[in-house]
Nucleic acid binder design. Sequence first.
DNA 1: TAAGATTGATACATCAATCTTG
DNA 2: CAAGATTGATGTATCAATCTTA
Lengths: 169, 169
Amino acid sequence: VTTADKLPHPPPPPTRWYDAFVGEQPEQLRLEAWRAFLVAHARLTEVLERELREARDLPLTWYDVLVQLNEQGGSLRMKELAGALLLSKSGLTRLIDRMSEANLVQRAADPGDRRGVTVLMTPTGRRALVEAAPVHLRGVQEHFAAHLNPDEAAVLRDALTRIASDIRP
Amino acid sequence: VTTADKLPHPPPPPTRWYDAFVGEQPEQLRLEAWRAFLVAHARLTEVLERELREARDLPLTWYDVLVQLNEQGGSLRMKELAGALLLSKSGLTRLIDRMSEANLVQRAADPGDRRGVTVLMTPTGRRALVEAAPVHLRGVQEHFAAHLNPDEAAVLRDALTRIASDIRP
DNA sequence: TAAGATTGATACATCAATCTTG
DNA sequence: CAAGATTGATGTATCAATCTTA
C-alpha cells in the first residue's frame, strides 16, 4: 500500500516528554524499578503458566481457584471468590462453568440466602490441587524466591503491600 | 440443581500442601513477597489503565506502542515491536490494525526486505503520546514511585531485573 | 526451505442488561 | 428497589495454518 521510498512523515527526533521526570536521579531510579517490575511480572507469569500447563495441564487461573477454596475450607461464595481472585463477577461465572464441566468444582445453593451460590471443591478438584501445588511452588521458588535474600524479600513484601493498599480505597 | 442440604462432600480440613515450603520462616517471607507482588501488579495495572482511559481515552497497550516507537525514532519492525511489548506476533498484527484504523500509526513496506513491515508513528500518534504521557507518568509517580525511598527502589530494580533475566534464556 | 506477517478458530475477560430472591 | 449471579455483546489475546518473499 504505502511505499517506503516516500515516507509520509520524515522521522522527527524522539519526543523527550519524560525529561521533567527523569531529570533528577531519584526519579530515574524509580522509573527503572517500574520497568523492571513490569518485565518481571510478564516473564514470571508466562513461565509459571507454561510450567503448570505442561506438567499438569492446568491453567493458572484454575489453580488459583482451587487454592482459594482450599484455604477457605473447601467452599466459598461466588462474590468472595471473585474478590479474592481479582476477577469480575461475570468472569468468575464463566470460569466456574468451565471448572464444573471438568468436575473440579461444583455449585450449590446457599440455604440461608437463595440469591447466593456457593462453590465447592470436589474430590477431583482436591486431587488436582495436591498434584499441581508442588509443581507451581517449585516454580515460584526457582524463578522468584531463590533470587531474593531475606532483606530483599522483606523490602519487596513491605513496599508492594504498601503500594497495593494505597490503591484500593 | 444441587441442594445445599445434602452437600455431596463433607468439607475435609484444608490440605496443607505448602507445609514443606512455609515451615521455615525465610520461605514464608518470600511467599508473602510473591503474593504482594501479584496483588500490587493487578491493582497498579488496573488503576493506570483506568486513569489513562478516562483522561485521554487511550488503552495502555496503545500507549506502550507509541512509547516504543518514540524511543526508536518513530519506526520499528513488527517483529521488534512484538518483542518489546511482550506480545505475540498475531496479537501485534491486530493491535496495529486497530491503531492504524485510528490513524495513530501506519504500516510501510521495508524496501530492503519486502517480507518485513515497518510501523511508523503518525503526527496524530505523536500528539496522542505527548498528551497521554503526563497523565500516565503522574499515575506511575503517584501510585508506585512515591511509595519507594531510593534504597527500596534500588532493591526492587536490581532484584526484579535479576529475576527477569534469569527466565528468558 | 525458512523468515516475517497475516488469518481463522478459539479462549477468556469485561460491561451493561437481565433474572431471581430478599 | 437492592444484592447476587448469569447472559449477551464485544474486545483482545493466543495457537496453528497459511501466504509472500528471500
